[in-house]
């Protein structure tokens, strides 16, 4: 029964007008800054993963002993690595800023019927970010 109905529907679509679906260029995101910003933000995730890989290499080298640790530090001094990390650092900071600035959009807080300004919501994130970064740096520099 169902099959028969489907068959009838298919027969009907023979006369269905073609959907209007214009072909979108693969480079659609190059045209306008908001689109480009979106793609750059998404690409920041590559450098997030890159940093994780570097940290795994660091942990593995520490485990293998002083020589491996020295070797890891020397590997990180490679100019190509430094160049990648300069670009990567800009991207991961871009992720942090865009992520924090999303908070007021994702979460609308009202106090006595008035909407709390975005900076009041994203501001604490920045304070927390700086505090945590300082603690991590302090632990490694001590």
């Amino acid at each position: 029964m169902v099959e028969k109905l489907e068959a009838e529907e298919k027969a009907y679509t023979l006369y269905h007008p073609r959907w209007f679906r214009p072909r979108v260029s693969t480079y659609w995101w190059l045209g306008r800054w908001p689109y480009l910003k979106f793609i750059l933000r998404e690409l920041s995730s590559i450098f997030v993963a890159w940093t994780v890989v570097l940290m795994l290499l660091a942990i593995a080298s520490v485990e293998r002993g002083p020589q491996a640790w020295a070797h890891f530090l020397a590997f990180m001094r490679n100019p190509l690595m430094v160049a990648i990390n300069v670009i990567g650092f800009l991207f991961v900071v871009f992720h942090t800023v865009t992520w924090f600035n999303l908070t007021p959009h994702a979460m609308v807080v009202r106090v006595r019927g008035k909407r709390v300004p975005g900076l009041m919501l994203s501001g604490p994130n920045y304070v927390l970010w700086i505090a945590i970064s300082a603690v991590v740096a302090w632990l490694l520099m001590r």
Partner: peptide, 27 residues
């Protein structure tokens, strides 16, 4: 990632290799 990744990439990828901060000893 927003809270923790930047400081790690900054220290291990830039500050230690470029000699801005002395990297920790193995011990």
């Amino acid at each position: 990632a927003a809270l923790l990744i930047p400081v790690h990439l900054f220290l291990f990828g830039l500050a230690f290799p470029l000699g801005w901060i002395d990297p920790p000893s193995h011990a």
